[in-house]
């Protein structure tokens, strides 16, 4: 007889776009995550922080269904990871955007083609691809540089191109893994501004960073990871001023309370 884990019987938050319920994750013999529980709703901006190896990337992998929990439940957009048909994973990924520290653009394709590629893969019609790519490249300020190759752009511009690619399929969740890691403060601010704009349209943004200055300045809700566990899950009492510049925000004290 199959023993039912009592932790799997817990009720889940129906509003949650991301739901982790007592999740463990192990790679072979190594434990990556232990008893992780949190939920995130539409329009939430969630900062994941902690030292390297704390489990931030493992959480992102679980959200993208790039890994599956060894215990507990992960529910993404109402889909339960443990019962997910593996063939349907690509369909879920079409609702998730990704931004990385190393941009991950295709070097031999223009900015336009890099962004259009995300639409092409999911089968959008040619005419719609043109419209959508134009819209997002205009939003990130790269329409004039659409014919350039990634190597002909600055780091900040490459990251904006990567954000445009993440935005073009109108994702419900955006995963940003150390997106400002390779950028100077000005470009980091531009990147965060864009992420806020995407978040304003209702997309749940999960922003992973180990940069404590950025967390202090921008963190509206901060999950601190340590050694594969959640050390704290805290929410700022007052909203951050998303229109202020990076330097101002760096010095904005911000009051944090337990979520």
């Amino acid at each position: 007889m199959k023993r039912i884990d009592p932790r799997e019987q817990e009720p889940q938050d129906p509003r949650a776009v991301i739901g982790f319920y007592h999740v463990d994750l192990a790679y072979k013999d190594q434990t990556a995550l232990q008893n992780i529980s949190f939920t995130a709703s539409n329009g939430e901006f969630l900062c994941l922080t902690g030292p390297s190896g704390a489990g931030k990337s493992s959480i992102l992998r679980l959200i993208a269904m790039d890994a599956f929990p060894t215990k507990g439940q992960v529910i993404i957009r109402g889909m339960l990871a443990s019962k997910m048909n593996r063939r349907k994973v690509p369909l879920l990924r079409r609702e998730i955007g990704y931004v990385f520290q190393d941009f991950r653009l295709l070097d031999d394709r223009s900015v336009y083609d890099n962004v259009a590629f995300a639409q092409l893969v999911v089968g959008v019609k040619s005419a719609d691809i043109k419209m959508n790519v134009m819209r997002v490249l205009t939003q990130v300020g790269l329409w004039n540089k659409r014919h350039r190759l990634p190597r002909q752009l600055s780091g900040g511009e490459q990251q904006r191109a990567a954000i445009a690619r993440a935005m073009v399929n109108s994702p419900k969740i955006l995963l940003a893994d150390e997106p400002t890691g390779n950028l100077d403060p000005v470009n980091a601010q531009e990147t965060i501004d864009l992420l806020f704009r995407i978040n304003d349209s209702g997309t749940c943004v999960v922003f992973s960073t180990h940069d404590q200055q950025i967390v202090k300045a921008f963190g509206e809700r901060v999950i601190v990871m340590n050694d594969g566990r959640i050390a704290s899950d805290i929410k700022r009492k007052t909203m951050v001023d998303r229109t202020a510049n990076l330097t101002d925000r760096m010095y904005q004290p911000g009051e944090l309370i337990n979520a």
């Binding site: 063939r87 690509p90 990924r93 991950r104 070097d107 590629f117 893969v121 999911v122 690619r165 399929n169």
Partner: peptide, 13 residues
């Protein structure tokens, strides 16, 4: 890299 990006944006195998 191309394959990785295809997977990320939801391309089927």
């Amino acid at each position: 890299r191309l394959i990785q990006i295809q997977k990320l944006v939801g391309a089927t195998n």
